[in-house]
Amino acid sequence: MVPDVNALVWRMWEDEFLVYNTTSGQTHHLNLLAGEALRSLEAEAAHERELVRRLADQFEIAEDSAPLQMIDRLVRELDELGLIAPSTL
């Protein structure tokens, strides 16, 4: 989940995202997959499997395709950046 959904401010240019975290004051540069994953978690918290399903639907790719096989690492990185946190789902 995104700890405070009001904390993130978004800009998107040419399939790249910049997201400003008003809580930390940090600006993050995210590629399309990372940006859409974070936007999805900002809209509604999800387990990793649910997140993979959502992204597979959005990008119209298989759930076991190469980019989505790395989603656990992406989620860990977003957590380390303070953009998401574990929820009690």
Binding site: V9, R11, W13, E14, E16, F17, L18, Y20, T22, G25, T27, H29
Partner: peptide, 25 residues
């Protein structure tokens, strides 16, 4: 690319952190 231009310009900014959200906008 615009995102790269943003980040390069941020590196040259004196008061990005001071202004916070207003600087990002």
């Amino acid at each position: 690319r615009k995102a790269v231009g943003f980040l390069r310009l941020e590196e040259n900014c004196f008061n990005y952190k001071t202004l916070g959200r207003a600087a990002f906008d």
